[in-house]
Nucleic acid binder design. Structure first.
Length: 205
DNA sequence: ACACGGATACTA
DNA sequence: AGTATCCGTGTC
């Protein structure tokens, strides 16, 4: 049986994720976020693709080469949004993981849209549902997330929320996309057979 | 295949 | 100041 978000969006989800969810290692968090529903100001979708970045010995993690990123980890609680501009073009959304065996981030790479679809279609300038959130830059544009969201605490305020998965979804792990360092690590997690997973530059699935 | 575009952290 | 790099997308 196929596992599409649309079959689950009308079922109940419990209250939003707590801080303890992000007080684990980045790989556990990245895998567990697949199937959860991300909400931001009336728009949102089920997370269908994530990547883990570890602050411990991961050359692809910002903390490896960016002092500002290490300061961010030190001065914010787990669950804080880490948003940055990549290639001068696209905002990318991460969440801080902290206080467990190792700190790090989870990059949100793709959503299966569930809420605010007309608004996301306008922001993305396309009606194609598969073009709305099928990539880390696409989903931030669709949701209207930019640098002003950097540092927002997921566990405070009501505009940014993640609701837990309603069941244990089938998750496939693959190498991370688009990085030059530590590219072999299988730290990308996707919802099996979901059509909204990003294609990526190398069409990896 | 390539253009687009800016923050960050280097070198000096 | 100048340079290298970077967790991508759209159009060529």
């Amino acid at each position: 049986m196929k596992h599409h978000a649309a079959s689950r969006i009308h079922s109940c989800r419990a209250t939003a994720l707590d801080r303890g969810f992000f007080t684990r290692d980045p790989l556990t968090c990245a895998r567990a976020l697949v199937g959860c529903e991300l909400l931001w100001r009336g728009c949102g979708g089920v997370i269908v693709e994530t990547e883990a970045y570890s602050a411990r010995n991961d050359e692809a993690c910002h903390t490896f080469s960016r002092p500002s990123s290490r300061r961010f980890v030190a001065s914010h609680p787990p669950g804080t949004a880490y948003v940055y501009l990549n290639y001068g073009v696209h905002w990318l959304l991460n969440f801080l993981v902290k206080g467990g065996p190792e700190d790090g981030f989870v990059l949100i790479r793709a959503l299966d849209p569930t809420r605010g679809i007309p608004l996301m279609q306008r922001r993305r300038n396309t009606a194609n549902p598969k073009q709305l959130c099928s990539g880390p830059g696409k989903l931030t544009q669709a949701l209207g997330i930019d640098g002003s969201c950097h540092g927002l605490d997921l566990l405070r305020g009501e505009s940014l929320k993640i609701l837990p998965a309603t069941d244990l979804p089938p998750v496939v792990e693959t190498p991370r996309v688009g990085i030059s360092k530590a590219a072999h690590l299988p730290w990308r997690f996707i919802l099996k057979d979901n059509p909204h997973v990003s294609a990526g530059p190398f069409f990896r699935k």
